Amino acid sequence: SEYETMLTEIMSMGYERERVVAALRASYNNPHRAVEYLLTGIPG
C-alpha cells in the first residue's frame, strides 16, 4: 500500500518502525511532516 511504501522509505532513513508509525499518525500520514517530527520530536 501507499502507507507501507511511506513507512518503508522513512524506515530506510534509520528510524524504527514504531517511531515512524507514531510520527505518521501524528502528522495524519503526511510523510514530510512525519520526518520533521522524527527529527524534532513528536508534539504532544
Results as ranks from 00 to 15, higher is better:
Ala23Asp: 00
Ala34Gly: 02
Gly44Val: 13
Val21Ala: 08
Glu36Gly: 04
Leu38Ile: 04
Tyr3Gln: 04
Ser27Pro: 00
His32Thr: 14
Ala34Asn: 01
Asn30Pro: 01
Glu16Phe: 06
Met13Asp: 02
Thr8Ser: 12
Gly41Arg: 07
Thr40Ile: 09
Asn30Arg: 04
Leu24Pro: 00
Gly41Lys: 09
Asn30Thr: 04
Ala22Tyr: 05
Glu18Gly: 08
Ala23Trp: 04
Ala34Tyr: 02
Thr8Lys: 15
Glu9Met: 15
Tyr37Gln: 05
Arg19His: 13
Glu2Asp: 13
Thr40Cys: 15
Ala22Glu: 14
Gly14Arg: 02
Thr40Ala: 13
Leu24His: 00
Glu9Phe: 13
Val21Arg: 06
Leu39Asp: 06
Ser27His: 07
Glu16His: 05
Ser27Val: 07
Arg17Thr: 04
Asn30Asp: 15
Val21Asn: 03
Val35Pro: 01
Asn29Trp: 13
Glu2Tyr: 12
Asn29Phe: 10
Tyr15Asn: 02
Thr8Tyr: 14
His32Ala: 15
Glu16Gln: 07
Ile42Tyr: 11
Val35Arg: 07
Met11Leu: 05
Leu39Trp: 05
Tyr28Asn: 15
Pro31Thr: 06
Tyr37Pro: 00
Tyr28Gln: 15
Gly44Trp: 10
Val20Ala: 06
Asn30Ser: 06
Thr8Val: 12
Arg19Cys: 15
Ser1Asp: 13
Thr8Met: 14
Arg25Cys: 15
Ala26Glu: 10
Glu2Arg: 10
Arg33Ala: 12
Leu39Val: 11
Arg17Pro: 04
Glu18Ala: 10
Glu18His: 10
Gly44Asp: 13
Ile42Thr: 09
Glu36Pro: 00
Ile42Lys: 08
Glu4Gly: 06
Pro31Ala: 10
Gly14Thr: 01
Glu36Arg: 07
Asn30Met: 05
Ser1Phe: 11
Glu16Gly: 06
Asn30Ile: 06
Glu18Arg: 05
Glu9Cys: 15
Arg33Cys: 13
Ser1Lys: 12
Glu36Thr: 06
Val20Glu: 00
Glu16Ala: 08
Gly14Lys: 01
Val21Gln: 07
Glu16Ile: 07
Ser1Arg: 11
Met13Cys: 09
Ser27Phe: 09
Thr40Pro: 03
Arg25Met: 10
Asn29Ala: 04
Met11Tyr: 02
Glu36Val: 09
Leu7Ser: 01
Ser12Val: 06
Glu18Ser: 10
Arg25Leu: 14
Tyr37Asn: 03
His32Ser: 14
Arg17Ile: 08
Pro43Ser: 09
Leu24Glu: 00
Arg19Ala: 15
Val35Ala: 05
Val35Asp: 01
Arg19Lys: 12
Ala34Met: 03
Ala26Asp: 07
Leu38His: 00
Leu24Thr: 00
Glu9Pro: 01
Arg17Ala: 05
Ala23Gln: 01
Leu38Ser: 00
Ser12Leu: 12
Gly41Phe: 12
Leu7Asn: 00
Ile42Gly: 10
Met13Val: 03
Glu18Thr: 08
Tyr37His: 05
Arg25Gly: 07
Ala26Ser: 06
Met11Ser: 04
Pro43Trp: 11
Pro43Met: 12
Glu4Ile: 10
Ser1Trp: 13
Ile10Ser: 00
Pro31Lys: 14
Met11Asp: 00
Ala22Ile: 08
Met6Ala: 06
Ile10Glu: 00
Leu38Thr: 01
Ser1Ala: 12
Arg19Ser: 12
Tyr3Ser: 03
Leu7Thr: 02
Ala22Gly: 05
Met13Asn: 03
Leu24Arg: 00
Ser27Glu: 05
Gly41Asp: 08
Gly14His: 02
Gly41Cys: 10
Ser1Glu: 12
Val21His: 05
Val20Thr: 03
Tyr37Leu: 14
Asn29Glu: 06
Ala26Gly: 05
Glu4Arg: 07
Val21Met: 09
Thr5Ser: 12
Thr40Tyr: 15
Arg19Asp: 14
Ala23Pro: 00
Tyr28Asp: 15
Ile10Gln: 00
Glu2Ser: 12
Glu18Leu: 07
Asn29Asp: 08
Gly44Cys: 14
Tyr28Ser: 15
Tyr3Pro: 02
Tyr28Met: 15
Leu7Val: 15
Ser27Met: 07
Glu4Asn: 08
Glu16Met: 05
Thr8Phe: 14
Met13Phe: 06
Arg19Pro: 05
Glu36Lys: 07
Tyr37Arg: 04
Tyr28Glu: 15
Glu36Met: 10
Arg33Tyr: 09
Arg25Gln: 12
Asn30Trp: 04
Ala23Asn: 01
Glu9Ser: 11
Ser12Asp: 09
Pro43Leu: 13
Ser12Asn: 13
Ile42Pro: 08
Glu9Arg: 13
Asn30His: 05
Met13Thr: 02
Leu24Val: 03
Leu24Tyr: 01
Glu4Lys: 07
Tyr15Met: 02
Ile10His: 01
Tyr3Arg: 03
Ala26Thr: 05
Gly14Tyr: 06
Ser12Phe: 06
Gly41Val: 10
Arg33Val: 15
Tyr3Thr: 04
Leu24Ile: 04
Met6Asn: 05
Tyr3Val: 05
Ser1Pro: 12
Ala22Trp: 06
Asn29Thr: 03
Thr40Leu: 13
Leu38Gln: 00
Arg25Ser: 09
Gly14Pro: 01
Thr5Asn: 12
Glu36Asp: 08
Ser27Asn: 07
Ser27Gly: 07
Met6Gly: 02
Arg19Gln: 15
Met6Asp: 02
Val35Gln: 05
Arg17His: 06
Met13Ala: 04
Tyr3Gly: 02
Thr40Val: 09
Glu36Leu: 11
Tyr37Asp: 03
Val35Thr: 04
Leu7Arg: 01
Gly41Tyr: 11
Glu2Cys: 14
Ala22Leu: 08
Leu7Met: 06
Ala23Leu: 03
Arg17Asn: 03
Glu18Trp: 13
Thr5Gly: 08
Ala34Trp: 03
Met11Glu: 04
Tyr15Ala: 01
Gly41Ala: 09
Gly41Ile: 09
Arg25Tyr: 09
Tyr15Asp: 01
Ala22Met: 06
Glu18Gln: 08
Leu24Lys: 00
Glu9Gly: 08
Thr8Gln: 15
Gly14Glu: 02
Ala26His: 11
His32Tyr: 11
Met6Lys: 03
Tyr15Ile: 03
Ala26Trp: 09
Gly41Leu: 09
Ile42Ser: 08
Met11Trp: 03
Arg33Ile: 15
Ile42Ala: 09
Thr40Arg: 11
Arg25Thr: 09
Arg25Lys: 15
Leu7Gln: 01
Val21Asp: 05
Leu39Asn: 10
Tyr28Ala: 15
Ala34Arg: 00
Tyr3His: 04
Met6Glu: 02
Ile42Trp: 11
His32Glu: 15
Arg33Pro: 02
Val35Asn: 02
Ala22Asp: 10
Leu39Gln: 13
Val21Pro: 00
Met11Val: 07
Asn30Lys: 04
Ser1Leu: 13
Tyr37Val: 06
Gly44Lys: 12
Met13His: 05
Ala23His: 01
Glu2Ala: 13
Val20Gly: 02
Glu16Ser: 12
Gly41Glu: 10
Pro31Tyr: 15
Tyr37Trp: 09
Asn30Gln: 07
Met11Ile: 08
Arg33Gly: 07
Ser1Tyr: 12
Ile10Leu: 13
Gly14Asn: 02
Leu38Trp: 03
Arg33Trp: 13
Met13Trp: 05
Ala26Pro: 01
Val20His: 00
Arg33Ser: 07
Pro31Arg: 09
Ala26Lys: 08
Ile10Ala: 01
Val35Tyr: 07
Glu16Asn: 07
Tyr15Glu: 02
Glu2Leu: 12
Tyr15Pro: 01
Pro43Glu: 09
Arg19Gly: 04
Glu36Ser: 05
Glu2Thr: 10
Thr40Met: 13
Glu4Gln: 09
Ala22Pro: 02
Glu18Pro: 05
Thr8Gly: 09
Ala26Leu: 11
Ala22Gln: 10
Ile10Asn: 00
Met6Tyr: 07
Asn29Lys: 04
Ile10Tyr: 04
Thr8Trp: 13
Leu39Gly: 05
Arg25Asp: 10
Arg25Val: 10
Tyr15Ser: 01
Val35Lys: 08
Arg17Glu: 05
Asn29Pro: 05
Glu2Met: 11
Ser12Glu: 09
Gly44Pro: 14
Tyr28Pro: 03
Thr5Trp: 11
Ser12Cys: 08
Met6Arg: 04
Tyr37Thr: 04
Leu39Lys: 14
Pro43His: 09
Ile10Val: 03
Gly44Ala: 13
Met13Glu: 03
Tyr15Arg: 01
Leu24Gly: 00
Glu2Trp: 14
Pro43Cys: 14
Leu38Ala: 01
Arg19Thr: 11
Glu4Val: 08
Val20Phe: 06
Ile42Phe: 13
Glu9Asp: 10
Pro31His: 07
Ile42Val: 09
Pro31Asn: 03
Ala34Asp: 01
Gly41Trp: 11
Glu16Cys: 14
Tyr28Val: 09
Ala22Val: 07
Arg17Trp: 08
Leu24Ala: 01
Ala22His: 07
His32Leu: 14
Glu4Trp: 10
Glu36Ala: 07
Leu39Arg: 14
Thr8Pro: 02
Pro43Thr: 10
Glu16Val: 06
Arg33Lys: 15
Met11Pro: 00
Arg25Ala: 14
Tyr37Lys: 04
Ala34Gln: 00
Ile10Thr: 01
Leu7Ala: 02
Met13Pro: 01
Gly14Ala: 02
Ala34Val: 03
Pro31Glu: 05
Glu9Ala: 14
Asn29Met: 10
Glu36Ile: 10
Glu4Leu: 12
Val35Cys: 09
Ala34Phe: 04
Tyr28His: 15
Glu18Tyr: 07
Tyr37Ile: 13
Ser27Lys: 02
Leu38Pro: 01
Ser1Val: 12
Asn30Val: 07
Glu9Gln: 14
Ile42Asn: 08
